[in-house]
Design a protein around this nucleic acid. Sequence first.
DNA 1: CAGCATCTTTGCGCTGGCTCAAATCTCGGG
DNA 2: CCCGAGATTTGAGCCAGCGCAAAGATGCTG
Lengths: 235, 235
Amino acid sequence: MTRPPLNRLDESLLTPLPPFSRLERSEIRAILDQAVSRRVEEGATVFHEGAPADRFFLLLDGTIRVIRVTATGEHVTALHIPAGQLFGIAPALGKDHYPATAQAASEALMLSWPARLWPRFAALDGFTTETYATVGKRLGEINDRIVEMATLAVEQRVANALARLVNQTGRKVEGGIEIGFPLTRQDLSEMTGTTLHTVSRLLSAWEKDGIVSSRRKHVTVTDPHRLVVLGQRRG
Amino acid sequence: MTRPPLNRLDESLLTPLPPFSRLERSEIRAILDQAVSRRVEEGATVFHEGAPADRFFLLLDGTIRVIRVTATGEHVTALHIPAGQLFGIAPALGKDHYPATAQAASEALMLSWPARLWPRFAALDGFTTETYATVGKRLGEINDRIVEMATLAVEQRVANALARLVNQTGRKVEGGIEIGFPLTRQDLSEMTGTTLHTVSRLLSAWEKDGIVSSRRKHVTVTDPHRLVVLGQRRG
DNA sequence: CAGCATCTTTGCGCTGGCTCAAATCTCGGG
DNA sequence: CCCGAGATTTGAGCCAGCGCAAAGATGCTG
């Protein structure tokens, strides 16, 4: 990412790692010759959320923290990468931008390669040909939910869950958009990590405000815009 | 899954769907001839968490709810699948068992194919050859965290986060296992969706109980077993 | 080795959301 | 058309954990 390969990277860097251990010396050589090594200090950022995902990384030493920052500035740590693992493999998921920020939790040493070399890597693990735009998208959505659970209050989580269902399965009906399948308070609570009681109270309040209208097992959103606002605002 | 292909599945089932719309009629025919169709009623289970993942599915109509059940019997809805989407694609992730349970949120109609046909599907989306054991594993871990955030109290989440870090980066030191990188209370709070104050109080209490010992930016787990117990128990 | 930035601990009051409990409503089935 | 199971609403009390505030501890820097 910063400078060209050092004099020459030592093959012993990769030899002990699982994916590479079975390879011929010459193959390892070829891979290393394409790699760029980089050392970063504790706290330094390796790549930023939203930046073009032009490289993927292999962590040789140290620990990487993968974080996301919410609209209100809170940090949520999505996962930690221990030495020996790949990270920043957004290219593999059909994404052209990194979905999160990676920073060094300790001083770290890593190799990286341009995204276009990914397919060559993929074969190493002995896996099959697969399509993963779907998977990448789903992974992103799940990640969003972690952030949501970590930073939002119950009311906002329920509002967002409802908004998501409207987008996925909503049908236009008179007076709003109806969720396209039977949905109980209990169901909504299981989607948002709360209780059916709380969901019931929320829906009642929203109904009073003209945002939703519901009958047994059915929810219609009458004011989608205000629902979305509920999901984002603080307070 | 239940019965052999009907008389003959109609090509118009697939024609309107994005991945298939570009295919020749003969190709669609070939795909359909391998498919099994199935109709399930509201509330019925399509496959159970932990069952051998021998098939993958395409939802033609209705909505599927993907849920996980915790050790204490609570249900957490991981995601909803709208009509037109694939689901149960565990085979694609290198998994041989379904990681969650799929049940019909409404009466649903679906097609399914044996797992071994997955590669043929994969090519449709126009994606590249990729390896995804890594991705599949990571997706599973993230999913676990959603369940955790939804069902566990703060103390349990922090205990689990610590246990995870010990497994990933722990080094044996005298008197226990030390997390292998600098870790502040703030860091732990960002991993678990709580505040540094609460984390501090928890660590103090645990230190008093001889479960952990910590100095500035470093945490050593002195009694891993009890830590794990803390992460699972209720109360 | 003194100063300072950062990290950690601790107290206190408040409240969102859970638990427990019970009444009421809705709809499909007989 | 009546009954019962499941769904929904609503009340009351309680407490885990947050927000706010401030003091202490630790380790790096010059």
